[in-house]
Design a binder for these strands. Sequence first.
DNA 1: CCGGATCCCAGACGATACTG
DNA 2: CAGTATCGTCTGGGATCCGG
Lengths: 112, 112
Amino acid sequence: MFAGCAPVTPPVRIGDKWTAKIIRCLQDGPRRYSELKVPLTGITPKVLTESLRSMERDGLLTRTAHPGIPPKVVYELSPLGHSLVEPLDTMCAWSRANLPKVLSARDAYDLT
Amino acid sequence: MFAGCAPVTPPVRIGDKWTAKIIRCLQDGPRRYSELKVPLTGITPKVLTESLRSMERDGLLTRTAHPGIPPKVVYELSPLGHSLVEPLDTMCAWSRANLPKVLSARDAYDLT
DNA sequence: CCGGATCCCAGACGATACTG
DNA sequence: CAGTATCGTCTGGGATCCGG
């Protein structure tokens, strides 16, 4: 789940490339598949589907298919998924606040 | 840094397998290389060295080599590194509290 | 004691094309 | 619209051995 707690239960969900972003996209309410693809710029359908399925398996969100033409599938955060929003915000806040320091530390290090 | 904030600045530090654990090992004071290897069960010397170098480059810790035989190298968290302790604790607390739920959600999902 | 050098692999991620 | 299928890539990390 989260690598900071030993041992990691695969697959690593938090800390992978997309899980956190997907949760952010869903935190204000349910969304359809195509409504997720837009803000998640660069994600391919395969990876989006994989991620959603895996998060559904972990109980972070629910998938509801409304049959018909055209198909309509809605994803919604579960209470468990919602409980992740705040920890994620904490991490993102740190990242936003400190990324400049990290970057300049890298520059300084690479100079030598 | 942290994948939840787009776009990710490689390499991904937080969320990789060892960074969070190394910070936890150093949060109560400086430690030598060999003192890190013990609690980080399973880590190979190569990976430990790589991780420490990379974190040093990012300004998360400092490396101080005391010359002599035998060599003695001390690693210590920088203020920037220390500032990560609390966000990390938040994530770990979530993981500890909710891992059972995730695991049982997986079991339920796999039954179908 | 503290690593560097080398080789290797699995699994995450992406590109592209196709379908009920 | 909401996915599958197939294939290729790339990198984090492990195994093992060697050196100052």
